[in-house]
Amino acid sequence: MSRAWTVLPCLVAGVGPAFAQAPSLEPVLRAELAFARMADEKGIRTAFLTWLTEDASVFSPRMTNRKEQYGPEPGDPGHLVWYPEAMGLAASGDLAWSLGPWTYAVKKGGAVLVHGHFLSVWRKQAGGGWKAVADIGVPHAAPERPVEPFAIWDAAPMKRLTQSKGSDATPVLLRKEADLAAAWVEKGGLALLPELAKAGRVLRPRRMPLRDPAEIEKALEADRPGARWEPARIQVAAGGDLAWTCGESGPDDRGATASFLRIWTLEGGDWKVLFDVRLPHPAPPK
């Protein structure tokens, strides 16, 4: 059995001090763990159909929806295992994110074929429960050492920055996305650098999540210029401090296209990118 799964039962007990500061995050963690347990016990298809909203955005690597990805029978017979190493919550308590490692094997107990990291966006539902509204992941080599849960960020809410009552951040974020897309045409991935939050992270295939500024800059240099986009989806927390966007971009100057998901956070009164995930699409057959 994968070590990642053996961590799950002790996670809730293991982060007790953090929840003393942020009790409202615990339901999101419990939802994530229940999601992972269902995948272990009942399979990938059942778990994702249960824990993703009907309109959830998923990426493989092209952007699609829950039904198209997981609806057809019999579904993926493989064994998918994951756990959250870090989570964050909007001040309004209605939008959250989770980040962590995953592994994939052909069957339960089989050899791990692929390692990676996922980023999920969670939204509080009308009945008070939580479901994922977006899920994306990148594959990478096996880590040199096991990832420690909650080692990167504390399980605490985002800094409570709120907008005035009645304000809507959607137009502002659409302008930010448009400005970023325009800058990308000239600079490629380096256009993202001034838009990253202080704790901003970049996820790219074949790399562990990047935190070091020098490593981020080197990785972004590989993102070719010329890729334009408009977000296909945008959601903002009720408190106006956390949001996410996703869509598809391209073609770049070499004709390549990609899917993206970004999580935005208010920082010093300005919207900055907390996470940027980019999945290149396979080259079309010649």
Rank of each mutant, 00 (worst) to 15 (best):
A91C: 06
S92N: 04
G93Y: 07
G93D: 11
D94K: 13
A96N: 12
L99S: 13
P101F: 07
P101K: 05
P101M: 07
W102T: 00
W102R: 00
Y104E: 01
A105K: 01
A105H: 01
V106G: 04
K107M: 02
K107Q: 08
K108H: 02
K108Y: 00
K108I: 00
G110D: 13
G110T: 01
A111H: 07
A111K: 11
V112D: 00
V112A: 01
L113H: 06
V114H: 01
V114E: 02
V114F: 01
H115W: 10
G116H: 00
H117R: 06
H117C: 10
F118S: 03
F118H: 05
F118K: 02
L119W: 02
L119T: 03
L119I: 05
L119F: 02
S120N: 15
S120F: 10
V121K: 00
K124I: 11
Q125V: 12
Q125T: 12
G127F: 13
G127H: 15
G127M: 14
G127T: 14
G128L: 14
G128M: 14
W130F: 08
W130T: 09
K131F: 12
A132R: 11
A132C: 13
V133T: 15
V133I: 15
A134F: 09
D135G: 07
D135K: 05
D135R: 06
D135E: 13
G137V: 05
V138Q: 11
V138I: 15
P139G: 04
P139Q: 05
A142D: 04
A142V: 09
P143K: 09
E144T: 02
E144A: 03
R145E: 14
R145M: 10
P146F: 10
F150L: 12
F150Y: 13
A151K: 14
I152T: 13
W153M: 13
W153S: 12
D154E: 14
D154M: 09
A155M: 09
A156T: 15
M158I: 09
K159F: 06
K159E: 11
K159G: 05
L161R: 08
L161M: 10
L161F: 09
Q163D: 11
Q163T: 07
Q163M: 11
S164A: 14
K165A: 14
K165S: 12
K165G: 06
G166P: 01
G166V: 08
S167C: 08
D168R: 10
T170K: 15
T170S: 15
V172K: 11
V172E: 15
L173M: 08
L174H: 10
R175T: 14
E177N: 11
E177P: 13
A178N: 03
D179H: 09
L180N: 00
L180D: 00
A181M: 06
A182H: 09
A182G: 07
A182L: 12
A183P: 06
E186D: 09
K187G: 05
K187M: 07
G189Y: 05
L190C: 01
L192I: 05
L192K: 01
L192A: 04
L193M: 03
P194T: 01
P194W: 02
L196F: 12
L196C: 08
A199W: 07
A199I: 03
R201D: 00
V202K: 01
L203V: 02
L203Q: 05
L203Y: 04
L203G: 02
L203T: 03
R204F: 14
R204L: 15
